[in-house]
Amino acid sequence: MKHSTSCKPQTGLHREGGRAATGPYSPYGEEAHSDADKASNWRYNFGYLDENTKRMLRRGLLKAVAIPGYQVPFGSREMPLPYGWGTGGIQLTASLIGRQDVLKVIDQGADDTTNAVNIRRFFGRVCGVDTTEKSADATLIQTRHRIPETPLKAGQIVVFQVPEPEPLRLLEASEVETRKLHAHQEYGLMHVKLYEDIARFGHIATSYDYPVRVNGRYLASPSPIPKFDNPKLHQSPALLLFGAGREKRLYAIPPYTDVDSLAFDDHPFEIQAWDTSCALCGSHDSYLDEIVTDDAGSRMFVCSDTDYCTSRREDAR
């Protein structure tokens, strides 16, 4: 099932105020696009960003891949969506996407929530690339808060949206100091947070954005994915890229890299587990969302990964 494929120039942008919906929006006026070729009728550059910006981003990404987990600064551009909505991820995607790519966008595991729909449609419009909801069909996956349940493959690229790239930030407010801590590998501080968790709750209560050590060197934030997804980072066949637009940092976990989640000897790393299975597809081993279904307190647990859940139900049928 290919969803909203072929997003070639669409007739009209739906804007408040009643712009004539005859052709694509052009900042140069109506006549400017009259003789443009059909495939790239859009007045923006392919992928929205200009080529120099893409080049800057790609250079940053190369450095990030060369030094796994290291936060590379970049000149974050203003994007047509607010900080916190995925400006970092969207810039990385824009610099990576090619005409042959098939894009999937995930928001909290789902393909049909606001953030996912809008970013997918955005790239459909500014690139004219194919989009999909199937994890297996996508070459490029931009995600927020989840890694797909379907195992990633070699050749796929996953772009994570990151609100706070610095895992030490809550404990050390100074950027100068955190950079020094990274440079000298002084990561004892991160364990202070885990210590506090155990002292307060009896176990490591950090359940998302769980700090990891990449390739035995840099401490990194896996972005706010649940710690359930942390094991998927380890030795992943896909290239994992992280972009923080507001904080202007990008970093990477190259394919087949060791990623360890921090822990104590007597309090090892554990992922979430549920004593129920998905109410829709019956999966026992996927990440479940609790959904309240009425005012009387009834609730159901369903897969957070909508593509995984849907395809399981289709297969069962």
């Binding site: 004892g188 202070v192 210590y195 506090e196 002292a199 104590f264 309090h267």
Partner: peptide, 18 residues
């Protein structure tokens, strides 16, 4: 907490047993 304050330097030296 006070405990974390005292333990911080030990953790910086690599102690990992809570």
């Amino acid at each position: 907490s006070a405990g974390a304050n005292v333990s911080e330097r030990l953790m910086a030296l690599g102690h990992r047993h809570y």
